[in-house]
Amino acid sequence: MKLGLQLGYWGAKPPADGNVGIARTAESLGFDSVWTAESWGNDVFTPLAWIGAHTSKIKLGTAIAQLSARTPTACAMAALALDHLSSGRMILGLGVSGPQVVEGWYGQPFEKPLARTREYVDIVRQVLRREAPVSSAGPHYPLPYTGPGATGVGKPLRPIVHPLRADLPIYLGAEGPKNVSQTARIADGWLPVYYSPFRQEVYADQLKEARPGFEIAPLVLVNIDDDLEKALLPAKMMLAFYIGGMGSQEHNFHKNLMCRMGFEAEANKIQECFLAGRQAEAIQYVPTQFADEITLSGPKARIKERLQAWRESPVTTLLINGPRMDEATLRTLAELVL
Rank of each mutant, 00 (worst) to 15 (best):
N252M: 12
M325D: 07
E119F: 08
A137C: 01
A81C: 11
A184C: 05
H54L: 10
Y106M: 09
P15Q: 12
L191Q: 04
F253Y: 08
T288H: 09
K208T: 13
L228W: 12
L128M: 15
W310K: 01
D188W: 03
R324V: 09
E103A: 09
V44T: 14
M258T: 14
S248W: 00
T316Y: 04
I294T: 05
L85P: 00
P192S: 08
I170S: 02
L221P: 00
A76S: 07
V124T: 04
Y285H: 13
R165Y: 06
P142H: 02
R278G: 00
V202Q: 08
V315Y: 08
K155G: 00
I170L: 11
A12R: 15
V101R: 08
S86A: 07
L29C: 10
Y145H: 04
G176I: 09
A282S: 09
F253E: 06
W10D: 13
D292T: 11
T317P: 05
A69T: 10
P197D: 10
Y285I: 04
T151K: 09
T25V: 14
A280K: 07
V124N: 05
T183E: 09
A132D: 01
A74I: 04
F290D: 02
A231N: 05
E119W: 11
S97D: 09
R331A: 15
L257D: 03
T316N: 03
E312L: 11
C273E: 13
A276N: 11
D205C: 03
Q100P: 07
S313K: 10
T71V: 05
S248K: 04
A282C: 04
P314D: 03
E250T: 13
Y106N: 05
P218T: 13
A184S: 06
A76R: 00
D122W: 03
E264R: 15
L92D: 00
H140G: 02
R118H: 05
D188L: 05
L114N: 10
L219A: 04
A26L: 03
T317F: 02
S56E: 12
V20C: 01
K304P: 02
P144M: 07
L296R: 02
A132C: 03
A334G: 15
L239R: 00
T316G: 01
G173S: 13
S248G: 15
A240V: 07
P163W: 15
R130L: 04
W35E: 02
D17T: 13
Q308K: 14
A26R: 08
L168Q: 02
C273F: 14
R129M: 08
P133C: 07
W105R: 11
L336T: 10
E264I: 01
S86H: 13
A187F: 07
V193G: 08
Q108I: 05
L239H: 01
M90K: 03
R211G: 08
K255D: 02
A78D: 14
E111T: 14
K57W: 00
D43V: 08
S39N: 11
Y120G: 05
R199W: 02
P169T: 01
Y285G: 01
I160H: 10
E111Y: 03
D122F: 07
L296H: 08
Q108V: 03
D32E: 15
S248N: 04
K255R: 15
M246I: 09
C259A: 14
I51Q: 06
E175I: 13
C75W: 07
I216D: 06
Q126A: 11
P287K: 01
A150F: 03
